[in-house]
Design a protein around this nucleic acid. Sequence first.
DNA 1: TTCATATATTGACTGTTAGTCATTTTATTT
DNA 2: AAATAAAATGACTAACAGTCAATATATGAA
Lengths: 223, 223
Amino acid sequence: MGISERKEREKEQRRNDIIDAAEIVFFEKGLTNSTMDEVAEEAELSKGTLYLYFKSKEEIHFEIKVRALNILKNMFRKSISEKKNGIENCLEIGKAYVDFVNKYRNYHKAIIYFESNDCSICEFRDKCEEFFKEDNPLIFFVQTINQGIADGTIRSDIPANALAQTVWAQTNGVLQFISTKQIILELSGVKAEDIIQCQFEIIKKGIESEGKGAQTQRKQKNK
Amino acid sequence: MGISERKEREKEQRRNDIIDAAEIVFFEKGLTNSTMDEVAEEAELSKGTLYLYFKSKEEIHFEIKVRALNILKNMFRKSISEKKNGIENCLEIGKAYVDFVNKYRNYHKAIIYFESNDCSICEFRDKCEEFFKEDNPLIFFVQTINQGIADGTIRSDIPANALAQTVWAQTNGVLQFISTKQIILELSGVKAEDIIQCQFEIIKKGIESEGKGAQTQRKQKNK
DNA sequence: TTCATATATTGACTGTTAGTCATTTTATTT
DNA sequence: AAATAAAATGACTAACAGTCAATATATGAA
């Protein structure tokens, strides 16, 4: 009884082929300027067939966003080291995000799109919810921040979840800014690297435990 | 020769009336689900007339985004006090942004849209550039951070422009997150206020001058 | 192999909507 | 009152997302 399984595989394959084709088209011309006919042609299928695998243009684009988030997630996973402490690992994730943006400009754009869309009212609310429940890039911030709270390198007065979400949101904001507001950088003569450097400085100072650097002094003061 | 001036005023008025109408329609149904016919009807004009005042649907939406940014800018201006020092004023701006989000949900959505769009390749690149040159919300971060660097409350090792842009971008990211990712907050049991609180904590620690709090101790250590 | 059934694919067609432009209406000037 | 200029109209077009009856291909039974 291998036939139905083979068919299942083939269907999955076709789905991926369509997403591949859509990536080529969307990344080339942008979502709005791309037509389903173009995607169909790139996929060497008829338009009707696309709609057997996806219920809308938006759904195809959604799947591209999922791909992007998964790639980012895997880069986060790889950037964490057993040998490093919590805050170091947390900052490594940040660096991994920067690498991601440099390596996958188009996927980053997809993530920007995703992050600026309201999941509560989006067409794929359920898929979003599932994604947030099982695994998404955020969990690595939670994980490393928990590590840092445990090993004393990250402040313990803020719950890990809140801290992780804030850092994640800030990082998204900064990378979105660099990516979409180059004009401001040019006009003010600021380099993208300066912003990234500054971002790390702020996060580091912002999340490190009080002990770090001024620990002994602080203890004396608090007496 | 008051006629041509009056006509000019009337034209400007009409333009604003159209934006007013578009706000009602777009805020009600969202940009994509709104049609120009609906905007025309709300404005009590024909569709053709809309195109005498705006060259596209996107241009009308762009003007709504400009309105949103101007409102935010004015709230920033009002939130700054002569009596406060640099870092206090900078944090006040942050609070003003939170107030803005609570007061003008729809305008905030417009800003999210604006911030996630690449200005370099957008239809209104020139208008964007002009806006960034003359006045936009960012300048108040620059201003208060400069104040803070001067009065010693904000770290001086990072240029004001870079610091301002980073803080602005982070703040955008956090407020965007709260607005579009309520699902994550719900799933993790984190309150929006917690994130905002956390954001302020991080920024404060991240931008305050070394001297703050641990000044005397630091001096001893550095010997 | 041959026919029947199920599954997958097609592309012409439809409905919607952004944007246009020849025509009409309104305001201004002579 | 006529001539001219400016503003507004709405029927029209082109583009495109999404549909569905017709067609093609694959599977299973006899």
